Simulated scan of single mutants.
Amino acid sequence: MTVALASDLAAQVRAGQLPAAARLMTWAERGDPRYVELAAGFADQLGAAARLGFTGPPGAGKSTLVQALCRCWREQGRSLGVVAVDPSSPFTGGALLGDRVRMADLALDEGVFIRSMATRGAFGGLASATDDVADVLDLLGRDLVLLETVGVGQSEVDVARSADLTVVVLHPGAGDTIQAMKAGLLEAADVYVINKDDLPGADRLERELADALELRRGPLTEAHGQAEPRQPPILRLSASEGRGVHALAERLDQLLAQGAADGSTATRRRANLGRRVRRLVEGRLLERALSDGKLQRRLDQALARGGTLSAHALAEQLLCALPHGGSPRPDEDDT
């Protein structure tokens, strides 16, 4: 595809053409150089879409909740994009597409664009190209972009870094509070949702969450001399029955408006952009360093010599062999 045709593709996405958006997302997921070039051209056109992250342990009902919220916002005439990060197949590396199957009724609505992505081993349960796919949905003109993770446990905080607001979905009777504390979700959450609140243990879970949030707020504020942080609300609902979903949608809209007014959303977006840049730089430096095999050959030679080896020392030796440009220096045998 020529440069001109690639530019036309971005224009087609801006015009709301869904096939063009799907192709651009595919380029983004593959790391296609054409996407990299186009992204530089439309970066200043992004930012209108609010991004909401949904995370929590498996079985909490995240997909059901996202589906219910989509219906609620569609009733208001708002357009939506959903990025559902599914587990990767251990054999093909592709997404299992479970969320797309569960949201089949929404897939027929052109006002809801659903994109399933594979984690491909990405840390934090979020595929590495999730931000780029969300950018394409923003370019497509979606009002809201919903990011849903696989719920891998310890590293859900990645969602908070990619979203304007993060919703942590829990359900009674599964040790969710302890897991949330281990995963750092107390710090990541902007809203807590107790789904399936008609099950035994819902009252206890709500009390434990409230106590944990209160314990976190006091010591952190005193120790760092910070202003008292915003206390995340705890909302109870049943996504499968639709009970409480409209109240959650209203609360999320209120928090988004508040974030836009006080500048906290802009601050989060700048921080996320910085993390994206660092991640890309790290990945590209590593790719360049390993591209011609010289670094791997140096490592193989060091391992073949045997003896007591320190992983840190070997890593330092390999780093010292790299010039500032990020490509390996010529092997001694090559000179």
Rank of each mutant, 00 (worst) to 15 (best):
L38V: 12
L38W: 04
A39N: 03
A39S: 15
A40F: 06
A40S: 13
A40P: 07
G41F: 02
G41V: 03
F42W: 13
F42S: 05
F42I: 10
A43W: 15
A43H: 15
A43D: 13
D44Q: 13
D44Y: 06
D44H: 12
D44R: 13
D44T: 15
Q45M: 05
Q45A: 14
L46T: 14
L46R: 09
G47Y: 08
G47K: 07
A48D: 09
A48L: 08
A49L: 11
A50L: 08
A50N: 10
A50T: 05
L52Q: 14
L52R: 13
G53W: 04
G53K: 02
G53D: 12
G53E: 06
F54P: 01
F54V: 03
F54R: 11
F54M: 04
T55F: 03
T55C: 07
T55V: 09
G56A: 05
G56S: 05
G56Y: 01
P57I: 08
P57W: 13
P58T: 01
P58I: 02
G59L: 12
A60N: 04
A60D: 11
A60R: 01
A60W: 10
A60L: 07
G61Y: 10
G61D: 04
K62E: 00
K62R: 13
K62C: 06
K62L: 00
K62S: 07
S63V: 00
S63P: 08
S63L: 09
T64E: 08
L65T: 03
V66E: 08
V66A: 02
V66M: 00
Q67P: 00
A68S: 04
A68W: 00
A68D: 00
A68T: 04
A68R: 00
A68G: 05
A68L: 00
C70G: 15
C70I: 11
C70F: 01
W73H: 09
W73R: 13
W73C: 02
W73N: 11
R74Q: 09
R74L: 15
R74I: 01
E75I: 01
E75L: 14
R78K: 15
R78L: 14
S79C: 14
S79P: 08
L80Q: 05
L80K: 08
L80T: 06
G81N: 11
G81D: 05
G81R: 01
G81W: 10
V83W: 10
A84V: 06
